[in-house]
Nucleic acid binder design. Structure first.
Length: 666
RNA sequence: GCGCCCAUAGCUCAGUUGGAUAGAGCGAUUGACUACGAAUCAAUAGGUCGGAGGUUCGAAUCCUUCUGGGCGCGCCA
């Protein structure tokens, strides 16, 4: 459980502790979970306790009567201004706002988990055979944001991007290069040099090639079998290694992988390790896993039925109903009758490694340099000195919801092996796909059927080359923000304007991907993604820019404004209707750390995204209503400046967790 | 056939542990730049929370069922 110390939660705990005491002493009642909420309007207070409703039946008394009795015992409570009964029997608790504001402003919030976890987050994991598209962006942005949340909460996190460099998808582009284009290994090398000289991207080239190959397999009915055989032979050649197909695969997949890292770096997304399928194969991870699985009885050899001759396991979620005789036809095949292992089998071995349970490690080489750290890649033989990877206590796999079943099977295997603790800390960080609206598809020049046109969205498909490429989208966003920045800030030099445009574009894109909850299908539309108004990243960045402008004009800083606030009694400014509105901003800001805990507990970054937007919105409202720089009362001016400072501090903090920066001007 | 997910304002979505009058953005209408930056703010209109039962002091939220949609279920990866 993540714990962080901050005013809102601290006062909440104090209130609940006191309430428990009262219930124990007055009614001899112990309640496990005491519900606590926020009243619908801030004028009712900061906390609402519906406890009287629950007690009404037990005590055979009216809720309001019980609430009154409890209130009589609750007060006085340090830090609280008072309690009231409201509605049918709510107990509303009101904070001493002046005191709470001082504590929020002093803001020495330490966030330290009770038990820091060594966590492993795996995200992105794009097949290295084509350019990244919008769906991959959602994956990477969700994963990267979750990494930031865990790190903000004080956990140690390794970021992994799994690379399936020996799968069918890579085989398909190798078939394209060697059989459609009829290129040799040397010719492929030449082609890659030519592409680079022309400024063309290899991942874009393969995007089209992959679509062509997929068509080619199906194009000629008479040739179909033969072509599928070419594909299969190529796949096996790549898996085995030591031949030209494998060399072409390595060459191309490595180049495309570099491109993916570049694309993601544009959004501030970095990785620590790139574990590859090729090493999982060549270092024989499976053999070790197989021994464990056989020994524990998770896998058993099927003697009859359709899976005869295979090693199988009980499917996750399958009931224990084994009344009937005969083989479990629903079982999941892990080792085929020809002795080869399936995808889920390899995944089990890989996940044993992640938890440090396999008894074997990768070798490692340096692959990519970031500003302040190195990204390593798995290897058969590597460098003697390298960081320690694997052996995590908790893992998070950012994988789309369609892979729920295979993920569940891996967890099932871990549990069957007796690794129940690890199984409980295995999170399939599931999310829904990004699809295109029919209108968007038509804008991109795709021909769509009448049936598709009537749907709310159309699934993207790499095989058909149907989708929005990540770099194209980022380019479009930057072009749009650049235009705005250029016209708003002609006084700035080009380089500065460029930097600001990029930050706004990234803010817009990341917020767009984060504002939807994970299990909502995003129907992608350029109009919405390219919007900078309303509930968007730039809206929040603009709120921060306004606070920066205020401190610049006031000749001070946010830190100084908070220090200057120390001696001010804000109580008179936090009463009445205007005071309620301003207090709303303070309270929202104070709850930021609470949101961090909630987002980690629920693995849902969208809550923080919404929170940040709400805070920006309430500040914008405050900004319009209360003019800070012209305030005549010096004490009140300090208070208003502190309001802007607290907002800036918490908004920048929340935005940084979302991977969104706030420029000086925009 | 089995399993999982979804249905909330014209559109796109929030609604976390069951709690007070179901919220936001966009779009629409109207108003606000001689005040800290209008990528902004204010106001108005807009809802049988897919239907029907049930549990509960209380249901958009939990249970049952129906309807409509999506996804997954290979000795592919």
């Amino acid at each position: 459980m993540v714990y962080s110390s901050h005013v809102y939660l601290q006062e909440q705990r104090k209130l609940l502790d006191r309430l428990r005491d009262v219930l124990r002493v007055k009614y001899q009642i112990e309640l496990e979970n005491l519900a606590i909420e926020q009243p619908p309007d801030i004028k009712f207070g900061e906390y609402a306790l519906p406890v009287a409703f629950e007690l009404a039946r037990l005590l055979k008394k009216a809720p309001r009567k019980i609430a009154e009795e409890i209130i009589a015992e609750l007060s006085p409570l340090e830090g609280f201004a008072g309690f009231e009964v409201a509605g049918a029997g709510y107990i509303n608790a009101k904070l001493d706002r002046g005191r709470a504001a001082r504590e929020i402003a002093s803001g020495t919030e330490k966030i330290a988990p009770e038990t820091p976890l060594h966590a492993l987050v795996e995200h992105t994991s794009i097949n290295p055979n084509k350019a990244a598209h919008v769906g991959h962006l959602r994956n990477a942005i969700l994963g990267d944001t979750f990494v930031r949340l865990l790190r903000a909460a004080g956990h140690q996190v390794d970021v992994q991007n799994y690379i399936d460099n020996t799968g069918v998808q890579v085989a398909d582009v190798v078939v394209g290069l060697m059989h459609l284009e009829k290129l040799s290994l040397e010719a492929v090398q030449t082609l890659m040099q030519q592409l680079e000289q022309r400024g063309e991207k290899i991942d874009y080239y393969c995007w089209d090639l992959y679509a062509r190959v997929s068509q080619w397999y199906e194009a000629d009915e008479a040739e179909k079998q033969a072509r599928k055989q070419v594909r299969l032979d190529t796949l096996h050649a790549i898996e085995n290694g030591g031949n030209d197909a494998a060399r072409v695969a390595d060459l191309v997949s490595t180049a495309i992988l570099k491109r993916h890292l570049e694309t993601m770096l544009r959004l501030g997304i970095e990785y620590d390790l790139l574990p590859r399928e090729s090493e999982i194969l060549h270092l024989h991870f499976w053999n070790l896993a197989f021994e464990q699985l056989k020994e524990s009885g998770v896998l058993y050899y099927e003697e009859e039925g359709k899976n005869k001759g295979c090693w199988v396991m009980k499917r996750a979620g399958a009931g224990q109903a084994e009344d009937q005789d005969g083989p479990d036809e629903d079982a999941k095949v892990i080792v085929r009758s020809n002795g080869t292992v399936t995808y889920v089998g390899k995944d089990i071995a890989y996940h044993l490694w992640k938890f440090g349970l396999l008894g074997r490690d990768f070798a490692y080489r340096k692959f990519f340099e970031y500003a302040d750290h190195t990204c390593w890649i798995s290897a058969e033989t590597g460098e003697p000195e390298h960081p320690h990877f694997g052996g995590a206590q908790a893992i998070y796999n950012v994988i789309d919801s369609r892979q729920a079943d295979p993920q569940a099977n891996v967890v099932e295997a871990l549990r069957g092996l007796g690794y129940t603790e690890q199984a409980s800390r295995y999170t399939h960080f599931s999310y829904e796909m990004v699809a295109l609206t029919p209108r968007c598809a038509e804008e991109l020049g795709y021909e769509i059927s009448d049936e598709d046109r009537s749907r709310p969205y159309i699934e993207v498909s790499g095989r058909k080359g149907f989708g929005v490429k990540a770099d194209d989208l980022i380019d479009k966003l930057i072009a749009a923000t650049q235009k705005e920045v250029d016209s708003r800030h002609p006084e700035l030099i080009a380089k500065e304007r460029e930097q600001i445009a990029k930050e706004i574009a990234v803010g817009a894109l990341r917020y767009f991907m984060l504002k939807y909850t994970r299990n909502t299908v995003i129907a992608f539309d350029f109009n919405e993604a390219l919007s900078f108004e309303g509930e968007t990243g730039p809206y929040m960045q603009y709120a921060v820019v306004r606070t920066r402008s205020i401190f610049r004009k006031a000749g001070t800083t946010a830190e100084q404004a908070l220090a200057d606030f120390a001696g001010v009694d804000a109580t008179p400014y936090l009463t009445g209707e205007d005071g309620d509105g301003i207090w709303q901003v303070w309270l929202r800001a104070a709850r930021t750390s609470l949101l961090l805990d909630q987002c980690i507990a629920t693995a849902e970054p969208a809550y923080l995204a919404k929170h940040a937007f709400q805070l920006a919105k309430e500040f914008s409202n405050f900004y319009r209503k209360h003019h800070i720089l012209t305030e005549a009362d010096p004490a009140r001016k300090k208070f208003l400046l502190a309001t802007a400072a607290v907002t800036q501090r918490e908004l920048i903090r929340a935005l940084s967790w979302l991977g969104i920066s706030a420029p000086e001007v925009m």
